[in-house]
Computed example of a mutant assay.
Amino acid sequence: MSTTDITPEALRCLGRYDFPSPADIDPDGIGIVAVGGDLAPDTLISAYSQGLFPWFNEDEPIAWWCPEPRCVMVPSDYLPSKSLRRQAKRERWQLTLNQAFDEVIRACSLPRSDGLPEGEHTWIHEEMIDAYTELHSFGFAHSVEVWDNEGQLIGGLYGLKIGSIYFGESMFHRATNASKLAFWGLMRLCVQSEVMLVDCQLPNDHLLSLGAAIRPRADFLIQLDTLIGKRSVQWHPHSHQPMAVAMLDSLKPWQLKL
Rank of each mutant, 00 (worst) to 15 (best):
M1Q: 04
S2M: 01
I6E: 11
A10F: 03
L11V: 02
R12I: 12
G15P: 06
R16Q: 15
D18G: 11
P20L: 09
P20D: 13
P22G: 10
D24G: 03
D28W: 03
I30Y: 13
V35L: 14
G36T: 03
Q50K: 12
G51H: 00
P54W: 07
E58C: 08
C66R: 09
E68Q: 15
P69H: 07
C71E: 14
M73G: 09
S76M: 08
S76C: 03
S76I: 05
S76Q: 13
S83T: 14
E91D: 15
R92P: 00
N98W: 03
A100F: 02
E103N: 11
V104T: 10
C108F: 02
C108D: 03
P111M: 13
S113H: 11
G115S: 03
L116K: 03
P117W: 05
P117M: 09
E118K: 11
I129F: 05
T133N: 13
T133A: 14
E134N: 11
H136D: 05
V144A: 06
V146T: 11
N149A: 13
E150W: 06
I154F: 00
G155D: 02
Y158R: 02
K161F: 00
I165M: 08
Y166K: 02
T176M: 10
N177W: 11
N177I: 04
K180E: 13
L186M: 14
L186G: 03
L186A: 05
L189Q: 08
L189G: 04
Q192T: 12
M196A: 14
M196I: 01
L197R: 08
L197V: 02
V198S: 05
Q201A: 06
Q201Y: 07
D205M: 03
H206G: 05
H206I: 05
L208W: 01
G211T: 10
I214A: 08
R217T: 07
R217G: 04
T226L: 08
R231W: 00
V233S: 08
W235L: 15
W235I: 12
H236Y: 09
P237M: 07
P242N: 12
M247Q: 15
M247S: 15
M247T: 10
D249E: 14
K252H: 05
P253W: 01
W254Q: 07
Q255D: 01
